[in-house]
């Protein structure tokens, strides 16, 4: 794999993530997303599954494996399937997970081309990844995820959402910039993140996410935590899904 040395020169979202390493991503996440710790805490508060169960967990867009490792610490008997389109990110997750005894199946794939067994997972996660898909692909992913989950299985997503109305998005951006600067983000960091968002990100509003989850068949659709763009939301596949 040839890595582009400058993220701003990367032609695709895959190439962008191929320029990152575990160290460079982890170092920037707390500056780019200051409430990252609160988001992870809220996520765990809303995964109401027995800690010692032999769960099968899917992580869509695993990045450097921060979320996978959090789950591994909380669910000692789980097995993981991690997916990312970037080979560098798959390598980072595999590297991080080497410190854990869990079985990890790593799949280098675009989410849109992913094929997984039906009725297989107890929990599916997507952390800051689905906004790289455009809206029709996000909603198709919800329909696919519904099939891959076992009856009763949970989907939990943390992602950026577009605040409504879109015309007032600049207010949210100003609040984010102030927060990121307070964490030490530089002009260069902010320029890089804003350029990334402009090129690769497709945010949808929360109401559309919840509506599409319900349309895909999920029940108990809810938002668990939100601050500025950052949102934790999800739903559950019914125990007895409609045919």
């Amino acid at each position: 794999m040839v890595s582009s040395p400058d993220p701003l020169q990367a032609p695709t979202v895959k190439a962008f993530f191929d320029t990152l390493t575990r160290e460079s991503y982890d170092a920037s996440i707390l500056k780019a997303c200051p409430p990252y710790g609160d988001i992870m805490e809220a996520l765990m508060d809303h995964i109401d599954l027995p800690r010692d169960a032999r769960l099968s967990i899917l992580d869509l867009g695993c990045g450097t494996g921060l979320l996978t490792a959090l789950m591994a610490r909380n669910f000692p008997n789980a097995t993981f399937t991690v997916v990312d389109m970037s080979g560098e990110m798959i390598a980072a997750t595999t590297d991080r997970m080497a410190a854990f005894p869990h079985t990890v199946t790593a799949i280098e794939s675009d989410i849109r081309e992913l094929r997984l067994p039906e009725n297989h997972f107890d929990l599916a996660l997507a952390g800051f990844s689905l906004h790289h898909l455009d809206d029709p692909d996000k909603w198709q992913t919800y329909r696919s995820l519904f099939g891959w989950l076992k009856p009763g299985g949970l989907f939990r997503c943390n992602d950026q959402c577009l605040t409504q109305p879109q015309s007032l998005q600049a207010h949210e951006t100003a609040l984010w910039v102030a927060m990121a600067r307070a964490q030490g983000a530089t002009d260069q960091d902010l320029a890089m993140w804003q350029d990334h968002a402009l090129r690769y990100d497709h945010y949808a509003c929360l109401a559309d996410h919840l509506r599409e989850l319900e349309a895909a068949g999920f029940e108990h659709v809810d938002c668990y935590w939100k601050q500025l763009y950052w949102t934790v939301f999800g739903g559950q596949k019914p125990e007895n899904p409609k045919p």
């Binding site: 109305p165 929360l206 109401a207 659709v221 938002c223 939100k226």
Partner: peptide
Amino acid sequence: TPIFTHFQWLSEAGFQHIDCYWRKVYWT
């Protein structure tokens, strides 16, 4: 009431640009 139900009632009442701006535990 769940937030998604609030969204549905607001939409039925005629509101647009319906959103949740902030949430911690119960407080929304």
